[in-house]
């Protein structure tokens, strides 16, 4: 499947079930990606819902020049940054609820990061800067190309190259020689 583009075409032609396919394929990944920015799984889900609702409301804004995944991630990223900008109140939750949140996060991680190697890398990502973390996520976890990652992050390819190089260097330090092989 071309990351949802053909499904979206069918959806535009009136096939509602095509939208289900898109959701099944991309929703959890989008939530996981947005969570890299907002560090709040519920907010990330909310933002992902908004991004998908963009697909429904502005049906002809997607011009098929990039993959649907890239387009959705672009939408998710800009909404996430907007959310961070306007986030005024830090929500304090009860400890019992906090357990649930982290449990949900872990569940999502388990779904996305079925691969053990990816889980190890994911844990190491927390020590990286936001941009490095995002670029590793896009390239390594979401299997986007360098160009697609550049489009999502609104940077050029060279910048993505540099970020990835520096991220790998940091991870090498964190994970050691064995960890390097995971990348």
């Amino acid at each position: 499947m071309d990351n949802g583009a053909s499904s979206y075409r069918r959806f535009l032609d009136g096939d509602e079930s095509a939208f289900d396919e898109i959701m099944k394929e991309l929703f959890d990944n989008l939530v996981f990606f947005v969570d890299r920015y907002v560090h709040d799984i519920h907010a990330a889900e909310d933002i992902a819902i908004d991004a998908f609702s963009d697909l429904v409301v502005n049906k002809h804004r997607y011009n098929f020049k990039v993959t649907l995944k890239t387009y959705l991630f672009m939408l998710g990223r800009s909404r996430a940054l907007n959310y961070i900008k306007h986030r005024k109140v830090i929500n304090f939750v009860e400890l019992t609820e906090a357990d649930n949140i982290s449990a949900e996060q872990e569940t999502l991680e388990e779904i996305i990061l079925a691969d053990e190697r990816k889980r190890i890398v994911n844990n190491a990502l927390n020590s990286l800067t936001d941009d490095m973390r995002v670029v590793v996520h896009l390239i390594y976890f979401e299997d986007l190309s360098y160009d697609e990652a550049a489009k999502v992050m609104k940077k050029n390819r060279k910048q993505v190259d540099n970020l990835l190089y520096r991220a790998k260097k940091e991870l090498r330090i964190i994970l050691g020689k064995d960890g390097e092989l995971l990348l």
Partner: peptide, 19 residues
């Protein structure tokens, strides 16, 4: 977190409101 049907319903509900 919501399940699949809840998410889908929420997506379409928000879309209708926006329209």
């Amino acid at each position: 977190m919501r399940n699949f049907d809840e998410r889908k319903a929420e997506i379409f509900r928000r879309s209708e409101n926006r329209i």
